[in-house]
Design a binder for these strands. Structure first.
Lengths: 119, 119
DNA sequence: ATTATACGACACCTTTTAGTGTCCAGTCAA
DNA sequence: TTGACTGGACACTAAAAGGTGTCGTATAAT
């Protein structure tokens, strides 16, 4: 193991580990959904303040935030000694689009059920 | 009366060990999303036919279907020697509701961005 | 009656996930 | 300057996830 293992996956630009996470995976974890909720309400929050809202340690929360960041659901910047996080809801659009496709199926189903009941 | 179990939102339901899976987790896996897609298009499909659509073995597909079933996204019944699966899109409503809450945030954000651009 | 198909139930393996604790470096406050 | 916050970077671990192969048993086909 090299001390600084640089791994670009597909010719990514920039320095940081831009792992490109699946949004579906990102929102699958309840802790991460709670983080999203907190950031939606709290505008911009530092790590330690977010950590206060959980029973787990700072490291764990930080990791969750990293995953959210990789899914681009969150951005962060350093202010003094703290790192403040902000929600970016845009990637949720993908979920919405995915759902939209199936919406017609549960409408069809509802109509079907209604017809059956009317017989 | 349908031969397979009818389910309601909060109500208890019939025989099996209903593990109650998180819908968010259920849709996090791409294989399971593809299964949902196939079942949406295919009405009612047996396991072996679903398995044909993947490179993995039958056992793996079956496990994914179990998870979908535990999330109540899928129902199944035995016809002769085959087990046929059917989509139940209803639980997707939970995802939709969850998204709806954040929709206002990305609208606010869009408005904010628009205002900035107009300056 | 025999053979092929479909699938549940296991046992098993590897990788990922979600958490921990420790160490070190900036930053702020006294 | 000293000392307390804040958090990044590891190293490590237990459990869950996602696969595999095999065996036994209904069912269907010949």
């Amino acid at each position: 193991m090299t001390p600084f293992s640089v791994r670009f996956k597909g010719g990514r630009d920039l320095n940081s580990t831009d792992q490109k996470r699946d949004v579906f995976v990102a929102i699958a974890d309840p802790t991460r959904r709670k983080l999203i909720r907190l950031l939606a309400e709290g505008e911009e929050l530092p790590l330690h303040e977010l950590t206060n809202q959980f029973q787990m340690g700072r490291t764990a929360v930080s990791k969750h935030l990293t995953i959210l960041k990789e899914a681009e659901l969150v951005t962060n910047r350093k202010i003094g000694r703290e790192t403040r996080f902000r929600l970016n809801p845009a990637p949720l659009q993908e979920i919405k689009d995915w759902l939209a496709f199936y919406e017609k199926f549960w409408n069809e189903r509802a109509i079907l059920l209604k017809n059956i009941l009317e017989e």
